[in-house]
Simulated assay, not measured.
Amino acid sequence: MSATMSLPVISAGDSLDSYIRQVNTIPMLTAEEEADLAQRYRSGNDLEAAGRLVLSHLRVVVSIARGYSGYGLPQADLIQEGNIGLMKAVKRFEPTRGVRLFSFAVHWIKAEIHEYIIRNWRMVRIATTKAQRKLFFNLRSMKQSFAALTHKEARQIAEDLGVKPEEVLEMETRLSGQDIALMAEDNDDDNHYAPIDWLADHDNEPVAVLQRRAFDQLQGEGLEKALDTLDPRSRRIVEARWLADDEAATLHELAAEFGVSAERIRQIEGKALQKMKGALTAA
């Protein structure tokens, strides 16, 4: 896909606000339009169809990228990395699974942004394992307040994320750093950031509202109940393929794990997703 379809780029001469305004004018697709375009791309390598799928979801990338503003990296770069993840999602999207591209693409968009942050932010050098990466990206949201963690809170977070309490406290120290001024000093460096640059509230934007609704449906109690309707093998396959914190497992990897063919894994996955869809609809 990338060989003949150019990735949307935020050029140096363009304003980021201008780019965001442009992508917000691109209408989202209906479920029927999305399924038709995805089928055209998968069956006939229709790059125009793939391009429409990408363009209609650029606003989703912008919304997700804004959630990582606090890491002090250029917002335009975060968006561009997220766009790469979106294109990977479009390439792998199968409309017959009964899941909208919006929900499917979130994992791929976040994965690319996470990798970019890890490559470019010096304080993440200690996040070398899967568990440490999970700690890095979840610690801020799991803290109950801006105050330093108590040992009890650190133990609870460590238990939830599968790391040592000492690692939680060390990561908190590195993320907290020294006190800095709210306003930036005079500085000609375009990459210079201060907290004032991050204090925008995007909670009530339409895209953010839609995203929260999708997450509430797929990751709340409904998801857990839907997973409970599956047998252990089907649940393992769904979690490995769709709910993995890191890179999703491939059909061939799961086939080797269960001693069956990749096609059989695909069949089990399809039936499991249909069963979960029914459970979510009935909830």
Rank of each mutant, 00 (worst) to 15 (best):
T128Y: 07
A256L: 02
T25M: 12
A240W: 00
A147I: 02
V23C: 05
A226F: 03
L47N: 13
G85A: 12
V207G: 09
A76G: 10
I180M: 08
K143G: 08
H57T: 05
T129Q: 01
N83F: 07
P165A: 09
I79K: 03
N120S: 06
A49Q: 02
E112G: 09
D203P: 05
Q219G: 15
R140W: 04
D179T: 15
A127G: 09
E153D: 11
R174L: 04
V209Q: 08
D201K: 06
K88W: 11
L218C: 08
L230Q: 05
E257N: 03
Y71N: 00
H192L: 07
A194W: 01
N187V: 12
K275V: 10
L199D: 07
A255Y: 02
P232N: 04
E167D: 13
P95L: 05
L86G: 06
N24Q: 12
L254A: 01
V207P: 01
A262Y: 06
Q219P: 04
E167P: 00
Q80S: 15
W242H: 10
R40A: 14
E224P: 01
S103Q: 05
V62Q: 03
D160A: 15
R174W: 03
L78S: 08
Y193A: 12
M1Q: 10
Q267T: 15
R66A: 01
G270R: 14
L243A: 11
A262N: 07
E115C: 04
L78Y: 07
A89C: 10
G13E: 07
L16M: 08
L218P: 02
N187P: 07
I84W: 03
V238K: 00
A181V: 08
H151K: 13
V106I: 14
P8M: 11
V61I: 09
G70P: 01
Q267I: 08
L73Y: 04
E263G: 14
G162K: 01
L182E: 10
Q156L: 13
S56M: 04
K91T: 15
R40D: 06
N120R: 06
L223P: 00
D17N: 14
T129A: 06
L243S: 08
M183P: 06
L101V: 08
V260S: 12
T128E: 03
Q156P: 09
T150M: 04
S56G: 14
R212A: 14
E253S: 09
W121L: 09
A12F: 04
L175R: 01
W242I: 06
L78D: 01
E239M: 10
V60C: 08
D231F: 02
V23T: 06
D17Y: 12
G44D: 09
L273M: 12
D17E: 11
D203H: 13
S176L: 13
D179I: 11
A208K: 01
K164E: 11
S2Y: 11
